[in-house]
């Protein structure tokens, strides 16, 4: 962990969450620095949401230490929440209110004066492109529109720390890019972001630093670039074999590269020189249906850290 303990906006030490006897978060340590975008990656059930909910004071810490904006969630939840914006994984909009009322009522929970609330609501509705739906009930909105409204709602109090649990799930590409842009600008203004996502491009775009969680623990930490350097090679060769029994290929790929990863639909060959590896595949007369050489991405880091079937 880097930095003096004082600089972290969120600081976790041996942070643990148990549901009964089940451990969802198992003694993790991390620091989120002011004005950075910090990501949590990990497969389903890794414990990302459980961690986010503890930070958002929505779920009590079972064990270990957690400080959010220098305060203790157990005793200062109200002060902390006043400065947070939360986009939960599952939308929990007030379905009895209209789109606009959702924003204005939320502002009141933060004691934001009416006139300020109205102008912020206007601005946010414009931003999430829901201005024309302002008077509509929430229920009939499309899934992506509800998501956008939830995001707008999280920004109504101009939060210092924004917690986004899979913010762009269900958004169309255009809305995603708009949100990325908005989050980027928010960060420029000094806000701190904590994000979980299953989109590796999103993590690469947005996060200054991230951790990969698996089975309730943190298995890697660093900037996207560092992680790629550390856990992946420069290039990746993707091979598809069609109907050929892969078991029959056993051994044939041996020595081809530092690491070979079997996915259900394709095989990934990690190497610094993809073209050379492909030539070697052809030379060995391995019956490939299609092949592709590309640069390594965060996705490869993710797969190599959490994927199940590692060969070699």
């Amino acid at each position: 962990m880097s930095g003096a303990p004082g600089d972290a906006l969120v600081r976790a030490r041996k942070l643990t969450k148990r549901f009964g006897s089940f451990t969802a978060v198992d003694g993790i340590d991390f620091d989120v620095r002011p004005a950075e975008a910090f990501g949590f990656l990990g497969p389903n059930g890794a414990g990302k949401t459980s961690t986010m909910r503890m930070i958002a004071c929505a779920s009590p810490v079972t064990d270990g230490d957690l400080a959010v904006i220098g305060m203790n969630p157990a005793s200062q939840a109200r002060e902390i929440k006043a400065r947070l914006g939360v986009v939960p994984q599952v939308d929990n909009l007030d379905t009895e209110l209209t789109v606009r009322e959702n924003l204005e009522m939320y502002a009141r929970y933060f004691d934001i004066p009416g006139s300020v609330a109205r102008s912020r609501a206007d601005e946010l509705l414009e931003f999430v492109q829901l201005a024309e739906r302002a008077k509509d009930q929430v229920e009939p909105l499309s899934g992506g529109m509800k998501r956008r409204l939830t995001i707008a709602r999280a920004l109504i109090n101009e939060p210092q720390l924004v917690i986004l649990d899979e913010p762009t799930t269900g958004l169309d590409p255009q809305a995603r890019h708009l949100l990325w842009d908005r989050l980027y600008r928010l960060k420029q203004r000094g806000a701190t972001l904590i994000i979980t996502t299953h989109y590796m491009d999103e993590a690469e775009q947005l996060c200054d630093r991230l951790v990969v969680m698996d089975k309730a623990r943190i298995v890697a930490e660093g900037s996207p670039l560092e992680l790629i350097e550390r856990y992946a090679t420069r290039e990746v060769l993707e091979l598809r074999f069609g109907d050929v029994k892969r078991a029959s290929l056993d051994g044939q790929l041996q020595g081809l590269a530092e690491r070979v990863e079997e996915l259900p639909d394709r095989t990934l060959v990690y190497t610094d020189d993809g073209e050379a590896a492909l030539d070697e595949v052809h030379r060995r007369n391995i019956p490939v249906q299609s092949a592709l050489v590309r640069r390594a991405s965060l996705e490869d880091v993710f797969l190599s850290l959490t994927g199940r079937s590692l060969v070699e």
Binding site: A56, A58, A77, R78, E79, K81, A82, L84, V86, P88, N92, L93, D94, T95, E96, Y106, Y109, F110, D111, R153, N157
Partner: peptide
């Protein structure tokens, strides 16, 4: 069903 309070609990309301 409506989960109204989950949203509210993310604000300073307890």
């Amino acid at each position: 069903f409506r989960k109204t309070y989950d949203g509210i609990l993310a604000t300073p309301m307890g």
